[in-house]
Design a binder for these strands. Sequence first.
DNA 1: CTATAATGTGACCAGTCGGTCATATGACCG
DNA 2: CGGTCATATGACCGACTGGTCACATTATAG
Lengths: 220, 220
Amino acid sequence: MPKQTFLNLPEEKRLAVVNAAVDEFADYGFEAASINRIVAASGISKGSFYQYFTDKLDVFNHLLDVIAQEKTEFFKDRHPPGANLDTFQYFRWMIKAGMEFNTANPRLMQAVSRVLLGEGLYYGRNFEDQRLKSTNAMRMMLQQAIKSGEVDPSVDVDLAVMIMETWSNAISSYILNEGMKQKDIMKWVRSARTQEKIDKLLYVMEYGLRKTESEFISQT
Amino acid sequence: MPKQTFLNLPEEKRLAVVNAAVDEFADYGFEAASINRIVAASGISKGSFYQYFTDKLDVFNHLLDVIAQEKTEFFKDRHPPGANLDTFQYFRWMIKAGMEFNTANPRLMQAVSRVLLGEGLYYGRNFEDQRLKSTNAMRMMLQQAIKSGEVDPSVDVDLAVMIMETWSNAISSYILNEGMKQKDIMKWVRSARTQEKIDKLLYVMEYGLRKTESEFISQT
DNA sequence: CTATAATGTGACCAGTCGGTCATATGACCG
DNA sequence: CGGTCATATGACCGACTGGTCACATTATAG
C-alpha cells in the first residue's frame, strides 16, 4: 500500500508516477522493471519514491488498486442486457465487457497482464519461430483431416489451432506447476485423478470443435 | 548457438553447465537469470562461459536444442497406438506423450516453459489471492447455476472453473497483445471479425461444458 | 625438449541496481 | 517575522550486473 503522502499528491504528479510505472511494467515485466527508470520518467526524485512506496511490489500493488477503481467506475453504468441471462450468456457478457475494459485501458492492463499472466505468446521475444513450428504442425494436421473428410471443411482452422495451442500450453503449465508440488510427480501424473481431469478437458475441447461452423452461426 | 568449444567439452562438465542454466532459468525466469550465478553453480570460470556462449539468450537457445535432442530420443520408440487414429485421438495421444515428457524432464521443461509461457498462474508470486478472488466468483456462479437446475449437477465444477479461467486469461492476453499491434485498437476489438472469433471461441467452450459428466464417461 | 596453438581463468571494468540520509524547500501557525 | 513540521531532493552507498582481457595452463606437434 502506498503511503498517504502519495495519495495527497496533486493529481497531475500522481498520474505521472502511475503512468511511468505502467509503462515500465508493460515494457519490462516485473523482474526487469527498474525503479530508477520509473523515477526518471515520472520526474520525481528517488527519495520521494521511497517516501511514497516501500518497494517495487508496492508500486505494482498500487496498479492493482487503480484497476479496481477504474473497474468500479467502468461498470457503474454498464449492466448485463436483461436480468434472466443463463450462466453462459452471463459469462459471455463478462468476457465482452472485459474486452471493452482492456480496450479502454490498454497500457494499464498490458502492464498487469504481463506481470500476472506472463509475456504472452502473441507478443514475444526471439522465439516466435519456435512457436510457429508447433502451430504449423497443428494447422497441417487439421487441414489433412479436412482433406480426408474427417473434419468438416467449414471449421475455422485458425481458430481450432488457437484452441489447441492454448490447451496444449495450459496443460503443460498445469502439469509442471502442479506436478512440482507433488513428492512423486510421475505417480501423480499417471494417477487416475490427473489422467481423468486431462481426459475430460480434452473431451470438452474436442466436443466443441467437432461442431461445424454452420452450426456456430445458426446457434449464436 | 554455443561455440564448438563447448560441444567438445567432457560430458560431465557440459552437463554441469546445462543443469546450472536450467536451474537458473527455472528459478528466476529469463530477465532475472544471472550469468554470474550460472557460472558459480556450474564451476566454470566467467571467461570460459563467454568462450562457450555469446550471452544469456545463447545459453537459453541451447536449452531449446537440448529439448529437441531429448525429444527425438524420447519419441524414438514411442508411437501412436494404432495407425488409424482420428485427428482428436492423435492430439490426445500427443498431449499425453507431452505430459510424460514433462514428467521425465521436469526441471528442463519448467525452465523453458517459464521463459516462453510465463510463470504460470498456478505457481505464483504474492498474487495468489488476487487470482482466487476471480476463480471463486466463477465457482459460485456455477454452483448457483447448478442449484437452480440450469447446469447439470454432475458437472465437475473445478474443471469448469479451470476452463473458464483459462479462456478468460487467454482472451484477455489475445486482445491486449494483438490489439496493441493495431493502429486503432477500439475499432479492431469491435470489428465483426474479432467479435466473431471470440464468439466462436466461447461457443466451443460452452458447448463442451454443457455436456454432462455422465456423457463424458460414456463417450471416453 | 621446444614451439605453437587452444583453452581456462579471475581480477577488473563501467554501468545499473535498490535503498539511505543529511540537507533543502516549502507550508502552516503564532 | 521566527519556529515547526511535512515533504522533496539527489549525492552517495554497497551489491550486483554483463562483459573483457592479460595471463596461466594444458594439449598438440615437430
